[in-house]
Structures are given as structure tokens and as C-alpha cells.
Nucleic acid binder design. Structure first.
Lengths: 136, 136
DNA sequence: CCGGAGATTAGACAAAGTCCAAATGGGTGT
DNA sequence: ACACCCATTTGGACTTTGTCTAATCTCCGG
């Protein structure tokens, strides 16, 4: 757990994000859990004890974090997006039955033989998702 | 274009699908275009000229096709699922700005160094998505 | 203390997809 | 042709995720 509420403001600032209460709470939810969370899970976590952060703010903030490359979005389930505090290069393992999502470090994975990109295009990212299910 | 309305019933039967009017029309939309279409695009195509196929039927049918492995679903855009008539092994190139989705043949692509699967799990599929955008 | 830019909010709204009970329809046997 | 049956289709209400907007709040500099 490299991030506490104390170190988060600096992290946000280093990504050019004004660290407000709500933003720190949302960042804290993501970075302290180090998990893949959906927007509604984040809203639930942030609002557990007492204070209220609105749905609009949660979405605003997550989209801001995305823009500033503080987090990534992971699109594996058509019904909801997951947000990923890990921005180091990595891939994903998705357990179809349970919905569990985990990281695959990119370090040892090698992808070769991709065709050249269309003219004038640059790669924004390569998403590799291994979908697995329980044998049976 | 290997599929016409004449050959589609056989294709459906070979996948253990009872070929009804609506199912043939929906299959025709996908297989004659050989494109990645979303549910609402398919509904629009099927209903262009006159007859009506209801939203419920479109979704029922697409999910049936998925179950029977006649088509695949491609999850690249959080807002909608695309359906892919190409079930041969292949990957996808997604142009983020335009939403254009195209195939990358899997034949020459090689992925190595993936970690072993968790105990008792089998791979259902590996999705590789190259996200690109216009340079600028 | 004041003003203003940026942040937050509630709630209405939009879009994708699901659900259900009722109606339909296409075979099959007679 | 008829009746029956079961799969399929259907409209429409409903759910869920996410967006939009206009009003309010906050906080900082002067």
C-alpha cells in the first residue's frame, strides 16, 4: 500500500489535479484497495460512513483521473467499466463466472507479429484480456 | 460474401439453431455485411424496409447466437457491445476517435510468456485489442 | 470582506439491455 | 382442414450505467 491519505495530494498534484476532499477520497478508495473497482463500488466505499459524494462527482472525478492518466479503465464486462489504479504496463485475467479481474504483469509477456498501423495512426494502448472460466 | 439468405438456414441448423424468419434476417445483417455491428445497428438494418423485428427479439437472438458460438461479442466501447460474425481466431484494431473497429488476423500474431492459469481454470478466449488514434 | 473560478450537487434525462406475461405462428398428427 | 402444442416473438415496463444542466458552494487572492 504505497499510498495513504497523506501522500495522495502530492500524487494528484503531480498529475495536474487539484486535490479536493472528494478527489482524495475517491483516489484513496482506488489506491488503498489496489483493486479494480466500478463506479458504483467506488461510490459505495466513499459514502460508507457518513459524508456524501454525489454520483455526478464520482463520474466527473473518475473521468478527470482518466484524462490525466492517473488511472486506467478496463473494459471487460459490457455492463460496467472497471477503474484500475495500476498504470504500469500490464494485462488482465478475467474470470467470466465470478467477474473477478486480476492483473498479469506485462514484463514477461511478449506480443509479436502485429501488422503495421494504418497511416497516421499511433498506438494509444494494447489491451490483452485472458478470459477464463472454471473447468467443467 | 459466402452467405446468402439461401445458405443461412443451413448455417443456423449446423449450430443447432432453429432458423426462423427473424433469425435469418439478423444473421443476414451480420454475415452479408461482414462487419462489426451493434445491437441497435442490427435492429435498424433489419427494420429498414418494412417489417418489424422487436428489440427483445434482436437481443434474444444475438444472445442465442453467442451461446451457440455462431458469432462473438467484442467489448471495446463501454457504451455498447459489437457483434462479430467472424469466429476464426483474430484480434481487433479499434480507432478510438472514430469508433471504427477492424480485424487483425491472428495467424501471424504470437503471444508468449503468459503465466499459468489458476488451478481448475480453462481459457475461454484471449482478446487482444490495439487502440489507436490519429496522430496529432 | 468581496468576487470569481473551479468544484460539487440534485435531479432530470438518455441509452443499452433485461424481463415478463400475452399473443403469435409453424409443425405435427388426425 | 383442424386442433393442439410448444417455441418464438412481442410490446412495454423496468433497471442500470452514465451524462447533462443549472444552481449552489468553497476557497483563495486582493
Amino acid at each position: 500500500m504505497p499510498y495513504t491519505r497523506d501522500t495522495l495530494p502530492g500524487l494528484l498534484r503531480s498529475h495536474d489535479i487539484n486535490p479536493t476532499h472528494q478527489r482524495i477520497e475517491i483516489a484513496h478508495a482506488l489506491f488503498s484497495h489496489q483493486e479494480h473497482l466500478s463506479a458504483d463500488q467506488i461510490m459505495a466505499i466513499v459514502n460508507t460512513n457518513h459524508s456524501e459524494t454525489s454520483k455526478a462527482t464520482v463520474y466527473n472525478t473518475l473521468n478527470l483521473f482518466l484524462e490525466k492518466h492517473l488511472i486506467r479503465e478496463v473494459i471487460v464486462d459490457p455492463s460496467k467499466v472497471f477503474y484500475d489504479p495500476n498504470t504500469r504496463p500490464h494485462h488482465h485475467l478475467y474470470e467470466v463466472d465470478s467477474g473477478k479481474l486480476s492483473d498479469i504483469d506485462a514484463e514477461h509477456v511478449h506480443i509479436s507479429g502485429l501488422p503495421p498501423l494504418p497511416e497516421g495512426m499511433v498506438t494509444e494502448g494494447i489491451d490483452l484480456i485472458v478470459r477464463v472460466r472454471r473447468r467443467g
